[in-house]
Amino acid sequence: MPEGNYSTVTEFILAGLSEKPELQLALFLLFLGIYVVTVVGNLGIITLIGLNSHLHTPMYFFLSSQSFIDLCHSTVIIPKMLENFVTKKNIISYPECMTRLYFFLVFVISECHMLAEMAYDHYVAICNPLLYKVTMSYQVCSWMVIGVYSMGLVGATAHTFCMLRVIFCKADIINHYFCDLFPLLELSCSSTFISEVVVLCFSAFNILVPTLTILGSYIFIIGSILQIHSIEGRSKAFSTCSSHISAVSIFFGSAAFMYLKPSSVSSMDQGKVSSVFYTIIVPMLNPIIYSLWNKAVKVALSKLLDKRSFA
């Protein structure tokens, strides 16, 4: 059908998490609290690592970068979500929707690869400790982080370019609480085959490759840990990895559920629940997990609080 026969959509309506008016205030307060904890926790991690010279190591350099990604990731999603809880009609313009989609993809893809790099860092630290300083030099770590953001930018650009080619003309209600790929594709009047193939290919790469990297790293790590005869040594090695394993499990589990299935077989209502985990819960939990399970972070935090109390 010729493009001229379409009435192009210039704005969308976000359906949100719930259509029940009586739940809007409770959900607003809940997610406002989550956002405050997310901002304070991730800024706290970044500040703590920046101020404490003992934490100026590759492991905490990656952790600081991950906290920055989590902070930006949640900031793209939650403020608009909070606005929607207190407005009658959750309108978002087409340019704003595409912009938010782009930056969401940049940070969610970067998170995937950052988690993989953190697993590799653990692998080098435990399996090749004598070569750790050489293998994970400042220059190498810097290039690894640049590579993470490059992956995010390339993936986001490809996805957004495909989305800009899609023609929206039917319904303008996005069955989600933010502009995401599959909910937007459901509104298309044009063929979405190429866009869905691009989504599945990039999602497979950005989820499966980091997952395989993480699994491979931890297979070698577990092998090395089992060779440690000291119970204290084993416990220390496991504690180094436990927080990262928890963050990886929640993030990749929920992301894979959302993106590694075609939209035709994936319920958007189920997708909303899955999305809440990797867009909102994970960025809030990461600083809590790392601060509770990481002894060096707890010691640095205690020293910082002691100094302030003394002052």
Rank of each mutant, 00 (worst) to 15 (best):
F168A: 00
D180W: 04
G41F: 01
G4N: 14
V166G: 01
G4Y: 14
H229S: 11
L23S: 13
S235L: 13
A119H: 01
L164N: 12
M59E: 12
H73D: 14
T211S: 15
S142K: 15
G152Q: 01
I146M: 13
V209K: 08
M258W: 07
L51P: 09
C72D: 06
L181S: 09
P129A: 06
I34L: 11
V36N: 09
L185A: 01
G216L: 05
C189W: 02
G253D: 06
S195I: 01
F103C: 05
A158W: 05
F31E: 04
H176N: 12
I219A: 15
Y120G: 04
V198S: 07
F107L: 09
L226S: 13
L285T: 07
F85E: 01
M268A: 12
L82E: 03
P79V: 08
N294M: 01
A296F: 06
S190W: 01
T87R: 15
L292Q: 11
G152S: 04
S217Y: 00
G44W: 04
V40N: 09
T87W: 03
T47G: 08
L181Y: 15
F257M: 14
I126D: 02
F193Q: 11
V86H: 07
R308K: 14
L29G: 05
P21A: 06
L130E: 15
I231W: 12
I146R: 15
M118P: 02
N5C: 06
Q24H: 06
L260F: 09
E19F: 02
A26E: 11
L187P: 02
H54V: 02
V37K: 07
K303C: 09
T213S: 12
